[in-house]
């Protein structure tokens, strides 16, 4: 088989497979989720666990120091408020 025929067939197969992929991709995006499963579609732990990005919020090993500092400060604030309300009661 001459070379140009082989290359043409290769490009043809590529185009056919790409078309199948794009059509199924777009159809998949457009079909709605079945009725009981809407809660799975929102970003959640179950979805992000399979991925490895440690900067993703739902990854098991997400570690942001500024956020942790904020949480601790807020916890201290709520404790202070609780102590103040207890003092006022006494």
């Amino acid at each position: 088989m001459p070379d140009w025929v082989r290359w043409l067939l290769a490009v043809g197969i590529l185009v056919v497979l790409l078309a199948i992929f794009i059509i199924s991709f777009v159809l998949y995006r457009k079909t709605p989720v079945p009725k009981g499963c809407e809660e799975f579609e929102k970003p959640s732990e179950a979805k992000c666990h399979g991925c490895n990005q440690t900067e993703c919020h739902f990854n098991l090993y997400y570690n942001d120091p500024v956020e942790k500092a904020k949480e601790e400060v807020q916890q201290e604030q709520t404790e202070e408020q609780r102590q103040e309300t207890q003092k006022e009661e006494n």
Binding site: N63, P65, V66, K68, A69, K70, E72, V73, Q77
Partner: peptide, 21 residues
Amino acid sequence: IENKKNTKKKVDAKIKMQQEM
């Protein structure tokens, strides 16, 4: 190494926030 850097950042952020409050 990351934990060391993070504790330093955390303590700095905490002090700043407490001073603001």
